[in-house]
């Protein structure tokens, strides 16, 4: 009886080993499948770029007159909006949207790797001191950025942002026509997504969380 069972055991051993091995291989393979090709998020309101678009360097200044270049976009997820402070309608709305995204409870744990940037395309009127008071009205952490026109253009052209100055009126006032999109840049300095009007904070937060998860798992 005991001899029989011993005999059975020894003949079973290779089978068990093979079974365990294939189980391990199967688990490893499924892990690879689950982890590697992160599924591209679907049903986004945002436009996710098919391929991350690396940005080339530019040289602007922030509201404290520090250099604001490509390095400042690295190690953080950045939301960028382009406008001007003499903008009564579109920009205050976009700033409030950015504020709501920033304040959303879903992003509480991500704030230290997040930055909200308002780039003024109207450097003649939007000096750094004014930009600082403008952006800080919305949130003290927000960053106002501007610079010389050709450096602004290096950035806007890469991001597909358009702007143009209208002719001044008899009072010397002028309006600036500009794109209404918010651009998302990843921590490697790649353009990743575009949020187009109508901008809603809820959908931006939802899409951002999915895009971030997707990018971090690639």
């Amino acid at each position: 009886m005991s001899t029989d069972s011993n005999k059975n055991k020894s003949s079973l051993t290779p089978i068990i080993v093979v079974a365990l091995l294939s189980l391990a291989v199967g688990l490893w393979a499924s892990q690879q499948l689950l982890q590697k090709p992160a599924p591209v998020p679907k049903n986004l309101e945002a436009t996710l770029l098919d391929k991350a678009k690396p940005l080339t360097d530019f040289s602007l200044i922030d509201h404290d007159k520090n250099v604001f270049d490509l390095k400042r976009l690295k190690n953080n997820w950045s939301f960028l909006f382009f406008g001007f402070t003499h903008c009564p309608d579109v920009c205050p709305l976009a700033m409030q949207v950015m504020k709501k995204v920033w304040d959303s409870p879903e992003l509480t744990n991500n704030k230290k790797n997040l930055q909200m940037i308002f780039v003024s395309v109207d450097p003649d009127r939007d000096k750094p001191e004014l930009l600082k008071r403008y952006t800080q009205y919305y949130n003290p952490a927000f960053i106002g950025v501007t610079g010389v026109a050709n450096q602004i253009d290096i950035l806007t052209r890469q991001l597909g942002i358009l702007y143009g100055f209208d002719d001044p009126n008899e009072n010397g006032d002028y309006n600036v026509s500009h794109s209404g999109q918010i651009i998302l840049i990843d921590p490697q300095g790649n353009m990743r997504a575009v949020f187009s009007p109508p901008l809603t904070p809820q959908s931006i937060v939802k899409d951002f969380i999915e895009i971030k998860k997707f990018v971090e798992n690639i």
């Binding site: 402070t85 009564p88 205050p92 403008y134 009205y137």
Partner: peptide, 12 residues
């Protein structure tokens, strides 16, 4: 008439 940043030169 929404409040605007105190430096805003225009309101709406």
């Amino acid at each position: 008439v929404p409040e605007a940043p105190p430096v805003a030169a225009v309101m709406v």
